[in-house]
């Protein structure tokens, strides 16, 4: 190893006194004391952060100034040794690896059985992994809506037909499952001039219901543009035209929002006439055709 003494680069200040280092450390000490005072007086996030930063920063400045001004550096030279080892060493490694391999009878059968055993173990190890979640089964295809279930708002209030307004949307759930995330549904009334989409017996007096879960990535489609009767998903801006049966008109969503068949019961409350007839929300591999 060959070394050269420290060479000053042009512009270097040269060995200066320790004054800047002492000042930085002094600031650091003062800031650290101030942090304890602030903390003891009840704490204040901005001051705590600024003072702690100052305390740490003082040490940083002291160390870096010390290293740059007072320590040798920059022009030490070290030789790189060749990275590949010698051929002899490699040969002895492979020899060491093959120790005991040669004289065994039926070696290839043994190797195969080892392979099979490891594979079987791998398969067996899948079963604890299986415990991590429930079986998807039908859960992606059904929601908690049933024929005759009253719709309720987030507060659990049932909704009368006349309460559904032309200009706003209501988020509703099945009365018996008011927390059911995949049953979240948008209830709204179209203006009389716009014919209600979907089968005639799925709507009442211009009131229609659509799944609130975006068919793109599953965000709640929570914005409504009353003038154009468009539902808008704030996540990726998919836009659905209610008049066209919530068909996507813009954005990455490729499928319409499923429509919930609704009716009105004897007491004048809005009820579901059955579950959605297709899976709600984002697509998946085995999703049946709409």
């Amino acid at each position: 190893m060959k070394t050269k003494s420290r060479m000053l680069r042009p512009g270097d200040a040269g060995p200066a006194g320790p004054t800047p280092i002492l000042v930085a450390l002094g600031i650091s000490i003062a800031a650290a004391v101030a942090v304890t005072v602030v903390y003891a007086l009840g704490g204040q996030p901005q001051l705590e952060g600024a003072l702690l930063g100052l305390a740490l920063g003082g040490v940083a400045v002291a160390l870096i100034v010390f290293a740059r001004r007072m320590l040798p550096g920059g022009h030490f030279v070290q030789v790189r040794e060749d990275l590949p080892g010698t051929a002899d060493e490699r040969a002895s490694v492979s020899a060491a690896f093959s120790t005991g391999a040669e004289p065994i009878e039926r070696r290839s059968l043994m190797v195969k059985m080892f392979g099979l055993a490891v594979g079987a173990l791998g398969l067996a190890a899948l079963f604890p992994v299986r415990s991590l979640g429930t079986r998807p089964g039908q859960s992606l295809r059904v929601t908690d809506w049933k024929r005759g279930t009253r719709v309720v708002t987030g507060n659990g209030e049932p909704v009368r037909l006349e309460e559904v307004d032309v200009n706003t949307i209501l988020t509703v759930f099945p009365e018996d499952h008011p927390d059911s995330p995949d049953s979240q549904t948008i209830l709204l009334r179209l203006p009389p001039s716009v014919p209600a989409p979907g089968p005639r017996d799925w709507t009442v007096e211009g009131v229609v219901a659509f799944s609130k879960i975006c068919t793109h990535a599953g965000c709640p489609v929570s914005l409504y543009q009353a003038q154009s009767q468009e539902l808008f998903c704030p996540c990726h801006q998919s836009t659905f035209s209610v008049a066209q049966g919530a068909k996507p008109t813009f954005g990455p969503a490729a499928r319409r929002l499923p429509q919930l068949p609704i009716g009105v019961n004897d007491q004048g409350f809005v009820v579901a006439m059955g579950d959605f007839t297709e899976p709600v929300g984002p697509g998946f591999w085995s999703r049946p055709r709409d």
């Binding site: 600024a50 920063g57 040490v59 940083a60 400045v61 002291a62 870096i64």
Partner: peptide
């Protein structure tokens, strides 16, 4: 020194 500088900036 760099470690202290990084933590000083992040805490601040």
């Amino acid at each position: 020194g760099l470690f202290f500088a990084v933590s000083a900036v992040l805490i601040a």
